[in-house]
């Protein structure tokens, strides 16, 4: 187990290093006009050269890369070109917003998806199963931005017009400032992200459970005279959840890099919205910082999923 983990962590570090190379190549090789933007239209070539020098953009690419890696290893991701604050601080401000959306939505979609999947799998080809399949296909094919806008239109705009003001139009209130307001601001983004994923998880759980419920050990469980509820939940779901857990770990990690569309629709300055702004402004340190965070999250999630496997399936522990 320890040897396995060490190997996985080393592999992960290799992946992260490789991603920094690609990120650097993508965002620094292209000609930059950051200095022009910062200097304004009136800037003389001298001013621009000075700005480039101060930002370190005049140095050879490999030197820039090496100093980036060196600083990153010390926890310094550079400065936001425009706000003149450390990228780590930019991330620290945006991350709680993204995490609020991601974690809340993940819990909702996991509960809806697994419940629906189990209901479908235990009554295959029934009216309920077909209904849930239609639900799944409907939301699975619905673009996130459309779902978000529809929610805003009906639950914010129409309700407010009707004099019932429950949900805000968007924005973010920290949990520490007001848990109630935080919740109200989060509900619509959560539903937006969760419904699309819940659809996918319904299908995933259904397929997995249908396979498991056909296993010999389920027949054994029934032959033992256990209640059907216990057969399905204790014996079936225990095995059926394994592929769901894998997917869940990776999906949640994917969201940590930013819930781009949903943050945009609900005007929440999370990592997604911040990185979109950074890309339009060619704010390389911010782009690379957020992308790096997303990479680390996915790598860590993969290792956590592997560890979770060992806890879920005793056969993995020995190998």
């Amino acid at each position: 187990m320890i040897r396995f983990l060490v190997r996985r962590v080393l592999q992960g570090l290799l992946v992260i290093w490789f991603i920094t190379l690609i990120l650097f190549a993508t965002f620094y090789i292209a000609p930059s006009n950051v200095a022009q933007t910062l200097g304004g239209r009136q800037a003389t070539p001298q001013t621009i050269a000075l700005i480039n020098q101060r930002l370190g953009l005049d140095r050879p690419l490999y030197e820039q890369y090496l100093s980036f890696v060196g600083n990153a290893l010390r926890g310094d991701l550079g400065y936001d070109y425009y706000k003149q604050i450390p990228v780590t601080q930019v991330i620290a401000e945006a991350l709680p917003k993204t995490l609020s959306i991601a974690i809340g939505a993940a819990i909702i979609w996991l509960i809806i998806g697994v419940t629906n999947g189990v209901l479908s799998a235990t009554r295959p080809r029934s009216f309920l199963d077909r209904g849930l399949t239609v639900f799944a296909l409907f939301f699975y094919s619905m673009p996130t931005f459309l779902l978000g806008l529809l929610l805003l239109f009906f639950l914010y705009f129409q309700l407010t017009l009707a004099g019932v003001k429950i949900f805000p139009a968007g924005g973010f209130v920290p949990f520490s400032a007001s848990p109630g307001q935080w919740l109200l601001h989060m509900i619509l983004p959560w539903i937006t992200v969760a419904l699309v994923s819940a659809a996918a998880y319904t299908r995933l759980t259904r397929t997995s459970m249908l396979e498991v419920l056909g296993e010999d050990y389920i027949r054994t469980a029934r032959s033992k005279g256990l209640s059907e509820r216990r057969v399905v939940l204790r014996h079936g779901l225990r095995s059926g959840l394994t592929p769901v857990v894998t997917q869940f770990g990776i999906d949640v990690a994917g969201l940590v890099g930013g819930v781009i569309v949903t943050e945009q629709v609900f005007s929440i300055d999370g990592l997604g919205r911040t990185s979109v702004t950074a890309i339009t402004q060619q704010d390389q340190p911010v782009i690379i910082g957020i992308a790096l965070l997303g990479t680390v999250a996915v790598v860590v999630a993969n290792i956590l999923v592997d560890i979770a496997y060992a806890f879920l399936d005793p056969r993995v522990r020995l190998n």
């Binding site: 296993e215 010999d216 050990y217 054994t220 469980a221 014996h235 879920l312 399936d313 005793p314």
Partner: peptide, 16 residues
């Protein structure tokens, strides 16, 4: 009525 089946590996739950 107790029952046993053909393949004891697949008939016992692998996780318990």
């Amino acid at each position: 009525i107790g029952m046993i089946f053909q393949d004891p590996l697949s008939s016992l739950h692998p996780y318990y």
